[in-house]
């Protein structure tokens, strides 16, 4: 296990620390344009009012179905995609007020590992150039130091220094993701947003990369925001889990609490939908839901899950539940017990 804050002192709750990142009422709307004069006819509410704190040293996982706004949240946090509304406070600094060179300097402290290791590396540059570029740009190393750092980082992520003269297309998916990790790591950041770092990889490689991420966290005291939809990986790597549905967080708590005693019906459904390899352990009475995720362009009123929730009552259609609770919070009018 990584040396997260949780383990250093089991009694201390993580919430007593000062958060590394604080997200307040984050919203990201994408306009829907129509017609020849391309007027805006509506918005896709990818992220719709999200509050979250990420504490130093922890791995916080963000889980949910495809299209629920996980990746958008991740990109908004590191301001690759500026949010429509809301604040992201990184080390006490409000990112919406930071621009230009100041923002570029902050990128040394917050990095992102992208989902697709095939498309996220520039095919025209050697791996060494790709890795050294951030060091040179931020004037963190001269040419010779940069080469040495590249060699070191390649060894750290399990490649060899000879790999730096090759081009990305000469590597396998797992190796390319290691390069992506090395790229994020080389600036020695505090926060790494891992945007589904293993979902494009083979299962056998997934475990390797997850272990690598864990080891690196212990070695460099990293904080991860781990975005995923594979619950196995999430259970393995996270300290806390946040469940997202249609751009909102519906449940947030420690990993074991979420996995053992889910409070939100959606979390339960999500856990149920994860296949269990051992047939004797399979729960016969599964909670299943019908239908698809409603369109984020026109989310349902009240609790956005009420259209698919088997326990929905009248109030769920009218009133949006708040995320309540101290260590294990849930946004539901009738939480499961």
């Amino acid at each position: 296990m990584s040396k997260s804050i949780l383990e250093i002192d089991k009694n201390a709750t993580i919430e007593t620390l000062a958060p590394l990142v604080e997200i307040q009422n984050l919203k990201k709307y994408y306009p829907i344009k129509k017609g020849i004069i391309s007027h805006t006819v509506g918005h896709v509410k990818a992220v719709d009012g999200l509050d979250l704190k990420i504490y130093p040293g922890e791995t916080l996982s963000l889980v949910g179905e495809s299209g629920c706004g996980k990746s958008t949240t991740g990109r908004a946090i590191v301001k690759l995609d500026p949010p429509t509304e809301g604040k992201v406070i990184f080390e006490g600094q409000n990112l919406s007020e930071v621009n230009g060179s100041e923002l570029r300097n902050l990128r040394t402290k917050m990095q992102i590992i992208f989902q697709d290791p095939y498309s996220s590396l520039n095919p025209g540059k050697r791996v060494g150039e790709l890795l050294a570029e951030p060091l040179i740009t931020h004037k963190l190393a001269n040419h010779n130091d940069a080469i040495k750092k590249v060699d070191d980082i390649l060894e750290i992520v399990g490649l060899t220094k000879h790999h730096k003269n090759r081009y990305p297309h000469e590597f396998s998916g797992g190796q390319r993701q290691r390069i992506g990790i090395a790229r994020a790591l080389i600036l020695n950041p505090k926060l790494i947003v891992c945007d589904e770092p293993v979902s494009a990889l083979d299962v056998s490689i997934q475990a390797q990369v997850l272990n690598l991420l864990k080891d690196l966290q212990a070695q460099f005291q990293l904080t991860y925001l781990f975005i995923a939809h594979g619950l196995g990986a999430v259970k393995y790597i996270s300290d806390r889990v946040a469940v997202m549905y249609l751009g909102k967080i519906v449940e947030l708590g420690k990993t074991e609490d979420i996995f053992k005693t889910p409070k939100h019906p959606y979390t339960k459904v999500l856990l149920n939908s994860y296949p269990i390899p051992n047939p004797h352990l399979r729960n016969r009475e599964r909670l299943v839901i019908q239908g698809d995720v409603p369109s984020p362009a026109n989310p349902p009123s009240g609790c956005s899950f009420h259209t698919r929730c088997p326990f929905a009552k009248a109030i769920c259609r009218e009133k949006t539940p708040d995320l309540v609770g101290n260590h294990h919070s849930v946004a539901c009018h009738f939480p499961l017990t």
Partner: peptide, 17 residues
Amino acid sequence: GQDYLRTARAKGLREFV
């Protein structure tokens, strides 16, 4: 529209670069 340009921005490179 390629992903690796987002990677380049994440490195903190200037838009011109």
